[in-house]
């Protein structure tokens, strides 16, 4: 029964938005292959309503493996479990998110089940005739797009960039099975123990999951000026990013860094202020849906990859933009940053 599988992701019992994005990808593939789509939920305390939402957003079956020992991602135990399930059910395709979890778990499992794996896909399709999965990914700093297939091994595994697709709307008439699968003790690896999260961290940012990222570079001139970016990010319900240069100057912390030696992001909207657009930075933002550049230098590389650029004093532009956005807001919630379950 060669199903298409997607791996849902959860944190503290809440499914992440990317779980639903993967289902919209998986639905298309399963329909083309004329097979079923199953979503796997590995975690703890994910409630029935959320499991049901996976069905409403495209899954035919949901395998729910929940146990306190699965609350936090620990690669060995997750990999033991997933490898065991793959060997038992032999899915044709497995999609996971290109997140810190997916990018760790999938290569580990691929080795164990002797499968091909493609990282960070932005497009997926089915090859006519063979039914092979065609996986397209940016490589070499986004300079090329490579299309890859796995003709002789199953499952065909891929991690998919978060935000590279939209969840399907909820269809409450959809019917699917939710199947609870127990975690067998022998699958638990006790060599690694999760000790929670560091609690003393200030100014941490979840850049990868932000729908809007407002980023600053050397042109911001001083740490204090990032306040302007924070205010603007807040208007959009987004997050603040930075170039390596800004981070190395101590203007903002490393979790904000975007680019080759920082995070790779693919938000719906990326606004770069005072960013020249070094190739290392561009590598981290190239798959953003819309790119806006604000820089007084008309020759800045970021202008060249931007969908909309303003050549001008960035402080004037940012201030004006913030003022105009604040003017039109009666104080409701922004669209961005809403969590997955809130749309009813």
């Amino acid at each position: 029964m060669s199903f298409v599988w997607t791996l849902a992701e959860q944190h503290a019992g809440r499914l992440k938005e990317v779980s639903f994005e993967l289902l919209s990808r998986g639905r298309t593939l399963a329909d083309k292959l004329d097979t079923k789509l199953a979503s796997l939920v590995i975690g703890d305390e994910v409630d029935d309503e959320q499991l049901q939402e996976l069905v409403w957003r495209g899954a035919d079956e949901v395998y729910s493996i929940q146990d306190p020992r699965l609350a936090s991602f620990v690669c060995e135990t997750y990999s033991n479990l997933l490898s065991h399930l793959v060997k038992t059910y032999q899915p044709s395709v497995i999609l996971a998110a290109a997140t810190s979890t997916g990018r760790t778990l999938m290569p580990h499992v691929a080795v164990r089940v002797h499968a091909g794996l493609t990282a960070d896909c932005t497009e997926l399709d089915i090859e006519e005739g063979t039914g092979n999965l065609l996986q397209t990914r940016p490589a070499i700093g986004g300079n090329i797009m490579a299309t890859i297939k796995t003709p002789d091994h199953r499952p065909q595994m891929a991690t998919v960039r978060p935000k590279s697709s939209r969840p399907l709307p909820q269809d409450r008439s959809r019917v699917g099975k939710v199947i609870a699968v127990p975690l067998d003790d022998w699958l638990v690896d006790e060599r690694v123990v999760a000790k929670g999260y560091r609690s003393d961290v200030q100014d941490f940012v979840n850049l990868e999951e932000a729908e809007v990222v407002v980023a600053g570079g050397r042109g911001m001139k001083r740490a204090e000026h990032f306040g302007l970016l924070r205010a603007l990010a807040e208007e959009f319900g987004g997050a603040v990013g930075a170039t390596r240069d800004a981070v190395d100057r101590g203007w903002i912390g490393y979790p904000h860094q975007v680019g080759l030696s920082g995070k790779t992001i693919s938000p719906r909207l990326y606004v770069g202020a005072g960013i020249s657009g070094a190739i290392q930075h561009l590598a981290g933002i190239k798959t953003s849906e819309t790119i806006v550049s604000i820089n007084s230098d008309p020759d800045a590389s970021l202008h060249k990859v931007a969908d909309f650029g303003i050549v001008g004093d960035l402080f004037q532009v940012l201030e004006e933009l913030r003022r105009r956005l604040a003017e039109t807001s009666p104080g409701e919630q922004g669209t961005a940053g809403r969590d997955a379950g809130s749309e009813k």
């Binding site: 090329i144 297939k149 060249k304």
Partner: peptide, 14 residues
């Protein structure tokens, strides 16, 4: 297991 089928150069400028 994986084979490269095709390599394309996307347009750099938007």
């Amino acid at each position: 297991p994986t084979k490269v089928v095709k390599v394309a150069t996307p347009k750099v400028t938007r």
